[in-house]
């Protein structure tokens, strides 16, 4: 199955060719999880503080569906 993924802030260098605001498309086996996607991208789980799937924060064992949109963030803050 194919999912669309975006990396933000300090994680952008794991997908250096994706322009600002753009998605990368990644193929995963059916039933693949957030953890599996992080492994495919080479992003250590310790660096991924919050992972959104279709706009909702999801845990590492969350099973992804074809066409899901995933946004991955390191620890960030501001205000």
């Amino acid at each position: 199955m194919r999912v669309r993924v975006r990396l933000f802030a300090m994680l952008r260098h794991y997908l250096p060719d994706v322009p600002l605001g753009g998605y990368a498309e990644k193929d995963l086996p059916e039933g693949g999880t957030v953890s599996d996607l992080l492994a495919t991208l080479g992003v250590p789980e310790t660096e991924a503080r919050v992972v959104f799937v279709n706009g909702r924060a999801r845990p590492p064992d969350w099973r992804l569906q074809p066409g899901d949109e995933v946004g991955i963030f390191p620890p960030i803050g501001g205000g």
Binding site: G55, G71, F73, G77, G78
Partner: peptide, 12 residues
């Protein structure tokens, strides 16, 4: 900067 928050609030 604090504008680091734009993308995460948009995503959420």
């Amino acid at each position: 900067g604090t504008a680091i928050l734009i993308n995460i609030l948009n995503e959420a």
